[in-house]
Structures are given as structure tokens and as C-alpha cells.
């Protein structure tokens, strides 16, 4: 019945084949990228060595948006075509995305201390990311709030799509709110033009993070499938006992 839509066993084999192609390049890119970022790129003329936080902060921000987009897409696929692996993929992606978002907020805060002399500034970008973080938390909380897991994943899928439509509106509002309330003297994160010696490690980190996400996603999907299988087995057992 479910096989007509997707075959978990086939997916499992595909995942096993793909895994090393994601995991190894991810590891290599992140290590090499970090080396360039920490030792082999120029310090900023204004910010000094603190600018190196950017090499984690900016890719983490990219990932925060990228993962949410992927969640919304797989949620839509799950709702429209009732593809069971699609919901599973959204479910697997959410905590990873939330972690990237948290890393982005944390590094933003660490960056803010030397730059602005305070751990938190209501900067437009950071505030938008904070709200995105709440959207992730809402998704995960809704997913786990029901006794019937199927209900949780479908409701969370609807929420992911609503959130996705809202992200640009929130971003626009927060940008607007920020220009209204903040004097222009605040240094923007995107302030200085980026030199290519900084751009290359930044892209390496970005691609590395993306591949790392793919590897982690496959791993988590497999874990969730195993958990579901265990649940199915105990349920079958229960059913057999009541039938006897």
C-alpha cells in the first residue's frame, strides 16, 4: 500500500551509497575552510581578528534559511502526494536547522560583544533569525504534541508551509522596524566589502555546511525509520496478543 508511493528499503540502499559522497567532502571542506579562515585570510582593517567569526556565522545563517526552505518543500510534497518519506525528511531536518539557527544566533552574539560592546543588539538580521528560530521550535513542538505521530507530522507540515510564506513578510517588517528605531550609525554586518581572499574560505565553509547537513539528514532519516519500524513491530505484537 505504501510501497506504491515510496520504498523505504530502496531509499535505505540509496542513502547508504550517497552517505560517503556527502560526509567525506563535508569534512574536508570544513577543515580546509577553517584553516583558511583562521590562519590564511587577512584580518579586517576595522574589526581585526573578530571578523573570523563570520566564517561560521554567515554559513550558519545560510543554512538556517536553506534548511527551513527544504522543510517547507518536503512538507508540501508530503501533504500533496502523501509521500511518507517527505514528512520523515522534514521531521529529520528540523532539529538540524534549529541547531544551525542557534549557532548563527550564538556567533552573532559573540561577534556583537567586541563590535558593539554588548551581547545582543536588536539588529534587523539577528532579530529575523531569532524569529526563524522560534518557527523551528514551533515546528518541532507541534510535531511531538500528538499521541498519533501521523497527525503530528501532517499538522507540522501545514505549519512549515505557513511559516515559509511568512518568513519574507517577517523579514520585511523587521527590516522596516529596524530602520525606524535604530540610528544609521550602527555598523551593519555586511558593512565592509568582502575581498576574494575572504570569499573563498566563506564559500568552502558554506558548501561544507550544506554537505554536512545532507549527511546528517540521511543519518537522521534512517534513525527515524528504524524507530518507526520498532514501533510497528511492538504494535503488531500487541495486535497479535489481543487477537489471540
Amino acid at each position: 500500500m505504501i510501497q506504491q508511493y515510496a520504498n523505504p528499503a530502496r531509499f535505505n540502499r540509496l542513502a547508504a551509497t550517497l552517505m560517503p559522497w556527502f560526509a567525506w567532502p563535508a569534512g574536508i571542506l570544513i577543515v580546509v575552510g577553517l584553516y583558511f579562515a583562521l590562519f590564511n585570510s587577512p584580518p579586517d582593517y576595522q574589526q581585526g581578528d573578530t571578523v573570523r567569526i563570520m566564517y561560521v556565522h554567515v554559513p550558519a545563517a545560510w543554512m538556517a534559511l536553506f534548511v527551513y526552505t527544504s522543510m517547507a518543500l518536503s512538507s508540501a510534497v508530503g501533504l500533496i502526494w502523501k509521500h511518507p518519506l517527505a514528512h520523515l525528511s522534514a521531521q529529520a531536518a528540523a532539529p538540524i536547522g534549529a541547531c544551525f539557527t542557534f549557532v548563527c544566533l550564538l556567533t552573532g552574539s559573540l561577534w556583537g560583544k567586541p563590535m558593539w560592546g554588548t551581547w545582543w543588539v536588536w539588529d534587523a538580521r539577528l532579530t529575523s533569525v531569532l524569529i526563524l528560530f522560534f518557527l523551528y521550535l514551533g515546528f518541532m513542538a507541534l510535531q511531538n504534541a500528538f499521541d498519533d505521530p501521523a497527525r503530528g507530522e501532517r499538522s507540522a507540515a501545514i505549519l512549515a508551509i505557513i511559516g515559509f510564506i511568512n518568513v519574507p513578510i517577517i523579514k520585511f517588517s523587521v527590516d522596516w522596524w529596524n530602520t525606524l528605531h535604530q540610528p544609521a550609525s550602527v555598523v551593519k554586518m555586511s558593512g565592509p566589502a568582502i575581498h576574494s581572499s575572504m570569499l573563498i574560505p566563506l564559500f568552502m565553509m558554506g558548501i561544507g555546511f550544506t554537505l554536512y547537513f545532507c549527511a546528517l539528514l540521511l543519518l537522521r532519516m534512517k534513525t527515524l525509520m528504524l524507530a518507526r519500524r520498532a514501533r510497528g513491530m511492538s504494535m503488531a505484537q500487541l495486535h497479535q496478543q489481543t487477537a489471540e
Binding site: 507541534l142 504534541a145 505549519l159 517588517s173 522596524w177
Partner: peptide, 27 residues
């Protein structure tokens, strides 16, 4: 409607709705 029948009801509802109504508050 999304939280209907959930174990966490009201608090969960606030968690879902508050981020979505930030634009209304701002303007």
C-alpha cells in the same frame, strides 16, 4: 486548528502564533 487535540494546548498555540503576528505588532 493546528494544535487541536494536542497534549500541550494553549502554550503550544502561543508558540506557533506569536512569531506569525510580529508584523501586525510592528506596524
Amino acid at each position: 486548528a493546528l494544535t487541536l487535540g494536542s497534549r500541550r494546548g494553549g502554550v503550544l498555540l502561543s508558540l506557533l502564533v506569536i512569531p506569525l503576528i510580529v508584523p501586525v505588532l510592528i506596524f
